[in-house]
């Protein structure tokens, strides 16, 4: 094309380029939206609908059964209790680690330490379950040590304590990164100001650091809780006799072929985890 002719070179698209130009981009998000609708949202709606049907041999619909039967309640309470305990333990352990890493940005071996702390992030639940068996199972290190020292066997792996250890194991790497970043984000001058005003390390922690970390702790806690609520691989490896909701759902689906109840429980589990995450994130964002 010659550059010398007098008429200006116009971009295609005419007069409404600014507005319609932007709008026209929308089409390229269509594949992602279509995939989401076809393979997640509509299936979920269908699953929710299935929960409203009656299982074979029952007259009430599955949601009613789930709400009225104590054994489902017990399963839900177990799951919530375990998830809360694991979340709290994780936050309490991860906070000093995050503080230490954030406050010491350069010491020999910090990189390696970070890598080691983060590596288990990619482990699926089944692997975590296996590691729990290796350490606290019948042939685990803990049992060997315990028999050597006290003569009594100590086996935690196949019940709630083992599951708790496993949950803390996979929650820690997720939480440490978040809290380290949050502590790094605290304005150092706040702490220095408090220090010159006479506040001890402990008072600075309580009065300045904790309030500044509330948002991050809420968000991290919600993430931990949601992850723990839905965790399946770990408990699957440790033994299907532990009564938590994901195992109950799995049992209803595979062993009893009770699809309506499995669907109803999934919807209850999904909604409750999502609600916790959503509430916590809104809370954290409003700070």
């Amino acid at each position: 094309m010659s550059l010398s002719h007098a008429t200006p070179m116009l971009a295609r698209g005419g007069r409404h380029t600014a507005l319609s130009g932007r709008r026209a981009w929308l089409i390229i998000a269509a594949p992602a939206v279509a995939l989401f609708l076809a393979f997640w949202l509509l299936p979920m709606v269908k699953l929710a609908g299935l929960g409203a049907t009656a299982p074979t041999g029952e007259t009430a619909n599955a949601y009613w059964l789930v709400v009225s039967e104590p054994r489902y309640w017990k399963s839900l309470f177990n799951t919530v209790g375990l998830s809360l305990a694991a979340t709290l333990a994780t936050l309490i352990i991860a906070l000093p680690v995050g503080r230490f890493l954030a406050r010491h940005p350069s010491f020999p071996g910090r990189r390696v330490l970070m890598s080691l702390l983060i590596f288990p992030l990619a482990f699926p639940g089944v692997v975590v379950g296996f590691l729990v068996i290796l350490t606290t199972g019948r042939q685990g290190v803990l049992n060997t040590l315990s028999q050597l020292l006290t003569g009594e066997p100590t086996v935690l792996a196949y019940a709630m304590p083992g599951l708790f250890i496993g949950y803390v194991y996979f929650l820690l790497p997720r939480t440490i990164g978040l809290l380290t970043a949050a502590v790094e984000g605290i304005d150092k001058q706040w702490l220095e100001a408090a220090q010159t005003l006479g506040a001890s390390t402990w008072r600075r922690f309580v009065d300045i650091e904790l309030p500044a970390l509330t948002g991050a702790l809420t968000a991290a806690g919600a993430m931990c809780f949601a992850t723990a609520m839905g965790a399946f691989g770990t408990v699957f490896t440790l033994g299907t006799r532990i009564d938590v909701l994901p195992i109950t759902i799995y049992d209803e689906f595979t062993n009893y072929a009770n699809l309506p109840v499995a669907a109803a429980l999934s919807v209850v589990l999904g909604l409750s985890t999502w609600a916790v995450l959503y509430a916590a994130n809104s809370l954290a964002a409003s700070r």
């Binding site: 001058q189 706040w190 220095e192 100001a193 220090q195 010159t196 009065d207 500044a212």
Partner: peptide, 29 residues
């Protein structure tokens, strides 16, 4: 230690505690 020196410091960015009101900031020390 700084917390025992009894110095009053005005920091460059003021370093006011965002989780406290004006009065709580002034009264913190």
């Amino acid at each position: 230690a700084p917390e025992s020196r009894g110095v009053g410091v005005v920091f460059q960015g003021y370093a006011l505690f965002p989780n406290m009101s004006v009065a709580e900031n002034v009264g913190y020390g």
